[in-house]
Design a binder for these strands. Structure first.
Length: 770
DNA sequence: AAGTAAATTTTTTTT
DNA sequence: AAATTTACTT
């Protein structure tokens, strides 16, 4: 079989250009997965490259799996030496490298290191904070963790972070201190957090020539997918791996860069030609996925971004139907609309796959409830994953301890769960003895058992009991994975504790643990995968790995949808403050990232795209009036069909004579959207006033909503209505989110870039319009 | 030490 | 509104 005939000319070049650096700028839906799969197959079958010489890095394990499947399918019937290339995520690649070679770093890490996920690492930060005597109210563990992670992703050590001047964050010195002991403790626990996986892998490659040469010789052909979302460390890794050869092929799309907040550095892709001087660049601009209208609308939105090279996607697909728009009275109505439409589409085409995309996971609940009520089977991606459930995490902590008893986070997690009589007093004593003798908590337990000092007999026997459990598990680590998992569930007393609870919830937890055993059994069959790999997998599975391509309805965040496609897509909750998210509202760059996210979401759609928003929404149990997203405003009206009942925002926006849409040539540069936008105070007030008049006439939609926005009288303090921008002497520019009270008691909730939300009394805050 | 009641917080996106 | 944390009882 030849691997070229069903490719377009550009795709073909991308497959054939195997030697030397290659940059593939692949627009949404331009068949990049196809190209990568064909390229790998071509390397193997035509170029005769041995499979172990190929490394392909994808964003998720699922994507790697999918790639493997497609390559295998292409190679069916080919006579080839067996073996599949290394297909993995950056993080699992680093784990594989480190499990081999971390000891060469001489940093007291052993090959049996533990991986700390977000939750573990947050716990460790919390420990550090409390040991330093810092107030968690002032230094939120999560934000400290984020600051540390950001610094690590920039390649900074604790010392460098402390020295790093710049903007004066009063918390900086304290965070640096936390950072320092956080790192110390990771090392003491023989643990690596997600960032460390990359950092240590880069370090070992950089430091040790032998290791570097080993991997340079091994990976002669390297492919990186989603290159626009790689960060500094991932780039460093690529550089080190391509020191000898330059057969590096990267694929990406600047318009789909949505992980800047996680340290992704777009200049990696923009400067690729600089980094690899002889690079060839190929643009894939033909879209095979979506209808013309969907592409037009998505393009019109992303065109509002300034920081953009700009490219033109085209398609020979049919024009398709207009994008459908719906304004719902509330989140419940929004979900009901989506469910009803899915059912309608099913009548047309019984097996149509649908996706509901939202900005935040918290939005999923209403959709789940409605889907269940109307009897639509759905698959949910993200949110609370299987491995994040408490009981599953607890059992995994037992297993981690069996392999690495110095892991104090795992120890703290399970030492008294299920309850076995080890309380605060005992824990304090363990901590004291550990510090006194400079040993781990695990070793401190043995010290206490030998020489109890202050503790009573009951506590000592509880500790002995616990130590015995872990030691016994330790004897099983070489055996079958499912056996030790079963032992952990049973010997820890977890099963009995749940059984004696005798509730439905406990029953569910038991079933989850049975699932864990089932998952472990898969590892029994594999020769070179054991407990270690099982636990690594649990830490490194991504949310997207829960995606089931056969599911009829999938609920997930817009982020998780990257790389996927569906005939029928709903983008819900398109409201200012939600999508774009309020945390991104005041920063132009962040707003542009939100817009790209919206673009990614829209370009998932193959045939039908629906965009919806609500006019009021519950947040923390409080009902808040919400306003339509500015992204809705950026969609060309002629491509939108309004399905709302009664008067919709769209109806007002488009129906008003004030609107003067300045439309230029479709693909020429166009001035920023000049239509009526709702990002000014007056227009929002106007919109809601119009609504009130209309609903007053007896429209059924949201007839009695007394949200704060609706109460805004344009004549009184009209400057500071929700949606308007203000300037604060200290915090700078901010977006007004909420308005409460009147006169002197007028309180405003304002979100400021870098400072979060603040409640301000207008009388004292000295706000100016911005 | 463990269970219950009260208070407090939570929501960005994720390897 | 729900979940988690803390305070208070036994």
């Amino acid at each position: 079989m030849d691997f070229l005939s069903d490719l377009n000319p550009e795709q073909r070049v991308a497959v054939e250009h195997t030697e030397g650096p290659l940059l593939i700028l692949a627009g949404a839906g331009s068949g990049k997965t196809r190209v990568i799969a064909h390229r790998i197959a071509y390397l193997l079958a035509v170029k005769g490259v041995p499979s172990w010489n190929i490394l392909a890095v994808t964003f998720t394990n699922k994507a790697a799996q999918e790639m493997r499947r497609r390559v295998q399918e292409l190679l069916r019937g080919e006579q080839l030496a067996p073996g599949i290339p290394w297909l993995s995520t950056f993080h699992s690649l680093c784990v594989r490298i480190l499990r081999q070679d971390i000891e060469r770093l001489n940093q007291n890490y052993s090959r049996s290191f533990t991986i700390y996920d977000q939750d573990d690492s947050a716990r460790l930060v919390r420990n550090c904070l409390s040991d330093l005597g810092y107030d968690e109210q002032k230094l939120a563990p999560r934000s400290v963790q984020a600051a540390i992670s950001n610094a690590k992703n920039r390649g900074q050590s604790a010392v460098a972070y402390a020295a790093g001047a710049g903007y004066e964050d009063p918390r900086r010195a304290s965070i640096a201190k936390v950072f320092e002991i956080y790192e110390e403790r990771l090392r003491a626990n023989n643990a690596l957090d997600f960032d460390d996986l990359l950092i240590k892998a880069v370090r070992v490659l950089r430091k040790d020539r032998e290791v570097r040469e080993k991997y340079n010789n091994k990976f002669r052909y390297i492919l990186v997918d989603e290159y626009q979302d790689t960060n500094m460390l991932q780039f460093a890794l690529i550089r080190l791996l391509t020191e000898q050869q330059q057969n590096i092929c990267v694929v990406g799309d600047e318009d789909q860069s949505i992980y800047k907040w996680r340290g992704a550095d777009i200049s990696n892709i923009l400067d690729f030609e600089k980094h690899f001087p002889n690079a060839k660049t190929i643009r894939l601009e033909q879209n095979y996925r979506s209808t013309q209208v969907i592409l037009d609308v998505a393009g019109a939105v992303v065109q509002n971004n300034i920081a953009r090279k700009g490219k033109t996607l085209w398609t020979s697909n049919p024009k398709g139907e207009r994008v459908r728009y719906y304004q719902a009275p509330d989140a419940e109505g929004e979900a009901r609309f989506v469910a009803a439409k899915i059912i309608e589409h099913r009548d047309e085409q019984y097996d149509i796959r649908a996706a509901v995309l939202y900005r935040t996971n918290a939005q999923s609940r209403v959709f789940e409830e409605v889907m269940r009520r109307v009897g639509l089977a759905y698959n949910i991606v993200g949110g609370f994953s299987f491995y994040e459930r408490k009981e599953v995490r607890d059992i995994i902590a037992y297993l981690k301890l069996a392999l690495n008893p110095t892991d104090s986070i795992a120890l703290a997690r399970v030492i008294n769960s299920p309850p076995r009589g080890i309380g605060k007093r005992t824990l304090d004593e363990i901590d004291r003895r550990a510090k006194e003798n400079g040993v781990s908590h695990w070793q401190a337990i043995s010290l206490i058992i030998e020489k109890p000092e202050t503790l009573n007999r009951a506590a000592i026997s509880a500790l002995k009991n616990f130590r015995q459990i872990i030691l016994r598990l330790g004897e099983l680590v070489e055996g079958q994975v499912s056996e030790i998992v079963k032992a952990a569930i049973l010997d820890s007393g977890y099963e009995n504790a749940l059984k004696s609870e005798n509730t439905e919830e406990a029953q569910g937890r038991l079933e989850n643990l049975q699932e864990l055993v089932n998952a472990a059994m898969d590892y029994d069959k594999l020769d070179d995968e054991g407990l270690r790999e099982f636990i690594d997998h649990a830490a490194l599975v991504s949310d997207q790995d829960q995606y089931n391509p056969d599911a009829q309805v999938t609920l997930m965040t817009a982020h998780s949808a990257k790389g996927l496609e569906f005939p029928l897509v709903f983008i819900v909750g398109l409201e200012n403050g939600l999508f774009p998210h309020s945390r991104a509202a005041t920063d132009v760059e962040e707003l542009e990232e939100e817009r790209r996210l919206c673009y990614v979401a829209m370009t998932r759609a193959q045939q039908y795209l629906y965009v919806t928003h609500t006019i009021k929404r519950r947040i923390y149990g409080r009902e808040i009036a919400s306003e339509p997203s500015l992204f809705l405003n950026e969609m060309p009206p002629e491509s939108i069909e309004d399905l709302s009942l009664g008067g919709s925002w769209l109806y007002h926006a488009r129906g008003s004579s004030k609107i003067n849409l300045e439309r230029g040539e479709p693909h020429k540069e166009r001035k920023k959207f000049a239509g009526k936008t709702y990002d000014s105070a007056e227009s929002i007030a106007e919109f809601f006033n119009q609504r009130r008049e209309q609903t007053g006439r007896g429209s059924s939609v949201g007839a009695r909503s007394h949200g704060p926005v609706n109460s805004s009288d344009p004549n009184a303090g009209s400057e500071f209505v929700p949606g308007s921008y203000v300037r604060h002497a200290k915090y700078g520019k901010g977006l007004v989110l909420r308005r409460e009270g009147e006169g002197d008691a007028l309180k405003l909730t304002v979100t400021f870039a870098g400072y979060g939300q603040k409640k301000l009394i207008q009388k004292y805050a000295g706000l100016k319009p911005a």
